[in-house]
Design a protein around this nucleic acid. Structure first.
Lengths: 339, 339
DNA sequence: TTGTAGGCGTTATCAG
DNA sequence: CTGATAACGCCTACAA
């Protein structure tokens, strides 16, 4: 428990300002809220007095009284690169609408629920949770706190209260497979991100997509890092039948595959085509002209803020779901299937 | 003016908790402040009731009443893995002392100053900035807001007001070089993280350390990622004289070096020794028993919180500097120099 | 246009 | 251990 506050000189309050300006406290409040009810002359006098005193509005008192703030809470997982990109986009989207963001991290030693709690205590007007494995356990009575889940894998039933925003990963994977089929590929492989919830859905979509074309599926365990991609590529090289196209778990993974194949003398895309999945905007990766399924983080972010603000302004009703389209960006790492 | 929410949907307050636990409000306050005056049994009952209700203390009311904030601000760079580890540690250190953390991210599209501004607006009682390239420009109104810089590269002159906490990187690098020299290595190489302020200091220390032993320095540009390490290793392999020991820019970089050397049939540590520099606790990397210079994030975090709280309690005076020792952890990737 | 009277949820004090 | 009571600084009726 922190000790008593230091014997600091008292901060000026509205009362002090009012006294100095020779008006009432209410008037000072009105002036600072920029609310109607104060004459031009009075307004000037109040602001002048406030400046003289170095008066600053007390946010604690303000939000205690009003019961609301202009801050959106964000719970993110500190380890996830994609969250970080999303964060950037959400900052921008919130800023555009006049909101501030308050961040709280879920770490290996700090649960999502704990992270959420901090934000509730700070009186944010809504919370967005990145990459929720499952809906966090909201405090029983804070059940009207607006909550948006990003990248949440459906299931939860139709009657959940939280809103969900996610990318159309399935559509993206299907587009990637279609692209490869169009190029004549029949022996494809897909790298699965073990340990990541996102991985499963992508692989499922891959299996369905190749099945639709009457082609065999081949799935290898991998991960979301460059090293994981490199390792998987080495395993592919060691096996007898090298596929003509590889769909990586995400972009870093694809970069790893690329690096390994290239340094083993395998031409990309001459001999093998490589497709990524937009999981990060890392500069080193963007430098490679990768064919990839791009997620639109800016749209994701805008939806998030919209849903949150919406609910904070009184919208009730069951959880809504926003599926943001992905799009296949064809780069230099895919080409016609080798002979 | 929105109508008063029904009692059922209002956030629970101390009163609600008190009612449910069958005690007085004062007692609830005592329990949550961890203040003396409540029996073990009562304490348990109160906490239980609070949990049932999903009660969370209202920070606004709290700080209004006590006249002090219990939140420390953190500005971090969302792209930096090490920041993320540090964040975890700082959460813990702050928690131990009864403080909450409020995060604000600096991203490619959002400056450090902007991040700081948000925190100042939220009335945190102090701010720690991770990896400050330069001291952030504090707004005029926050001239005496406690400020701690982590990993800041000195220079700023002796009269700066901010406190600084950093790892003894130089000592760590020297220890690593000493270790290699003890093992008989004379042809060493050091990978430099271009684009990262930390990189420069480490390379400088490396040059000084090998010079002290009368050995030549060899520096290659690289980076803080596995891929950067892998690329650098490939360049080393392509050159005529392979060094017998490589000091990587950080641990991920070392992992990349390791992967490339191993897959090229170069035995580690039989033919080449590899040393990392603790930049992250990524599990995939910890799995490798890497010789590395370990930074003590928990001590770093404790110092950060200590300095901040200190100043917030009235400590004045010029900026202090805390240098936290690093230590060489010898793993399985270093061994005697080859023939 | 101005003033007055609550009350937001918490902590602190003081009597039982 | 309880219960009552008074702030903390601000906002919002409502009355003047």
């Amino acid at each position: 428990m922190p000790p008593d506050p230091p014997a600091a000189e008292r901060r000026p309050t509205m009362k002090d300002v009012a006294a100095r300006a020779g008006v009432s406290r209410a008037l000072v409040s009105i002036v600072f809220r920029d609310a109607p009810g104060a004459g031009e002359e009075t307004r000037r006098r109040v602001l002048r007095a406030a400046a003289d005193l170095g008066y600053v509005r007390d946010q604690s008192a303000r939000s205690l009284r009003t019961g609301r703030s202009y801050q959106l809470g964000v719970v993110f997982e500190s380890r996830d690169d994609f969250h970080v990109d999303l964060l950037d986009a959400v900052y921008r989207a919130a800023d555009d609408r006049g909101y501030e963001l308050l961040l709280s991290a879920a770490t290996p030693r700090r649960t999502q629920d704990r992270a959420l709690e901090t934000l509730v205590g700070a009186r944010v007007l809504g919370v967005v949770v990145f990459g929720a494995r499952q809906a966090p356990t909201l405090p029983e009575t804070a059940r009207d706190l607006p909550l948006v889940l990003v990248g949440h894998q459906e299931d939860g039933g139709a009657d959940r209260r939280e809103d969900v925003v996610r990318s159309d990963e399935e559509g993206g994977v299907r587009a990637a497979v279609q692209h490869l089929v169009d190029l004549g590929h029949t022996r494809t492989a897909c790298l699965e991100a073990v340990d990541h919830r996102g991985g499963l859905a992508r692989v499922r979509a891959y299996r369905a997509a190749v099945a639709d074309h009457g082609l065999p599926a081949r799935v290898l365990p991998s991960g979301f890092t460059q090293l994981a991609g490199a390792t998987a590529a080495q395993r592919l090289l060691a096996e007898p039948d090298l596929p003509t196209a590889v769909i990586a778990a995400n972009d870093p993974c694809a970069a790893g595959v690329l690096a390994t194949l290239t340094s083993a003398g395998v031409d990309v895309p001459g001999r093998v085509s490589v497709v990524g999945f937009d999981g990060t905007r890392d500069d080193a990766i963007r430098a490679v002209d990768l064919t990839t399924v791009r997620q639109d983080v800016d749209v994701l972010a805008a939806e998030v803020v919209q849903l949150l603000v919406d609910r904070s302004e009184g919208h009730r009703g069951p959880g809504r779901e926003r599926v943001v389209p992905t799009r296949l960006v064809v780069g230099a790492t895919t080409g016609p299937a080798a002979g």
